[in-house]
Design a protein around this nucleic acid. Structure first.
Lengths: 264, 264
DNA sequence: CGGTATTTTGAGTATCGTCAAGGCCAGTGG
DNA sequence: CCACTGGCCTTGACGATACTCAAAATACCG
């Protein structure tokens, strides 16, 4: 961790960016102030390891900006992605135990580290914070189950479609991953083909062909290799095979919302 | 839910079986007593639905015996398994929100229902219980991630191998799913081929062929269609491709432990 | 402008999904 | 006790899909 660049002079900025973080806005002001005081901001650049599998993290981490990969190390040395953390996500076992996966920045990212002792003490004091922590974990559980449904799709095309749907819904409003156009949605795939292949249990070649197949069928257009334009949400949902508790209807809604948010 | 058979006269048995449940043994006696008092034991038979997707469960459930499937309903009506609950597992969102999947008994099972209000009150009072609840959720998260790694395996054989490994480790000591022999381990697959196919994202035929392939390569022997004897743990781990943070070494350990537990 | 990493494309083979038929087992009813 | 039935599991054949290996094209970075 020693090589991480610390963002300068946090306290001078009035408890650093945590105080103004969108995802923490509903916490009482005194709790936010306290979090800001104990926050230890860290800037990591893409590809950098944040924490390693098996490490007993001395702090609870909070992703403020960027995307972080969670990956398990296989016995043959390969790394397998088991999820992505985006802004608003916590990591580091809040109660106990070592990390079960390695954390690596997928993009440049800003992270807050809260020392475990003080953080847990604050959790005990503030039911609101405790609730936030709990909801965060439950949310992760839901996402993991969504991944399971996607991964169980027999065709690569379908898994890709499911992936895009997840990015659109669960990761909407994160960083600048999802943007809207006149009558389409632009998605930025925040990881490389290789990573995506690992995540979806396939190879980079198949990912490439899968995207092409989706493009040929008119669901999407590939504008710049990791810029996907979603043209036909319903067709995409049909390819994904299903639901993950989110049918085409709720997707249409999402498109509406995105469109109202005005492209910038 | 009205068709569930209630186990007779719980209170007469000194707060019903919950009081003596192995997984709750570490709770303070007064908490256990209280749980026993508020427990509402329910017996469900295989195939019965315990709770449905979207339902606002009025209680927190606890699986005391048996296996319960968690399954999501896809838009085309099919059901997709996203996990299994075994003895010691809690279900029903402890804090809020509706269920995101349907719960169905995979085997005959015994379940405890705790009314949500009193249960949450007890959670607030007892840090030990709160911790138990939290650890339960974190454990589920780990299991979901393990499933992800397994599902990402490109070959059905590998996914099957991973499944067997998970049953051996995470489900060891549950019901009578895992038993040991002189120098092998017997595993009882607690779900049908069709369910297993849904869980692993494939078809029953491929499951069948996959088991056969593993048997041909000498990793396992199929004794009775849902009785698998694991002959070569390391080969199985190699097939699984990986790890799920559990290498062959820890598996060997498991075999040891099981063997010491004496076959009955 | 070169060098590297990432992505795409192509050809051949293995695996898997699909459809269809047959076998095994348990429970039922004679 | 035995035949019958229905559910579950296995087997076989064939076509579609995806993995493997290899090479070319593109983007990225200095």
């Amino acid at each position: 961790m020693s090589e991480h660049r610390y963002i300068d002079d946090c306290e001078a900025q009035r408890g650093c960016f945590v105080f103004n973080d969108r995802h923490l806005a509903r916490l009482p002001e005194n709790v936010r102030t306290e979090l800001g005081r104990m926050c230890n901001p860290i800037a990591v650049s893409a590809g950098q390891t944040v924490a390693s599998e098996g490490e007993e993290l001395g702090y609870v981490g909070y992703v403020h900006r960027g995307v972080v990969r969670m990956q398990k190390t296989l016995s043959d040395g390969r790394q397998h992605i088991v999820g992505l953390l985006v802004e608003g996500d916590l990591f580091g076992r809040v109660f106990d135990g070592a990390l079960h996966f390695t954390l690596e920045a997928a993009t440049d990212a800003e992270i807050c580290a809260f020392q475990r002792g003080p953080f847990e003490a604050l959790v005990m004091e503030s039911p609101e914070l405790e609730r936030l922590v709990m909801l965060n974990i439950l949310d992760e559980l839901d996402r993991a189950r969504d991944w399971m449904v996607i991964l169980a799709n027999p065709r690569v095309r379908g898994r890709l479609a499911g992936f895009l749907m997840v990015v659109c819904t669960k990761f909407a409003g994160v960083d600048h991953l999802v943007r809207s156009n006149k009558n389409s949605v632009d998605v930025k795939v925040p990881i490389t083909r290789a990573d995506l292949a690992h995540l979806l249990g396939t190879r980079t070649e198949s990912i490439s062909r899968g995207f092409k197949a989706l493009a040929d069928s008119g669901c999407i257009a590939i504008t710049k290799a990791n810029r996907i334009r979603i043209l036909d949400v319903e067709a995409l949902a049909a390819e994904a095979g299903d639901d993950h508790a989110m049918d085409a209807a709720s997707l249409r809604e999402l498109v509406q919302v995105l469109q109202e948010r005005r492209p910038d």
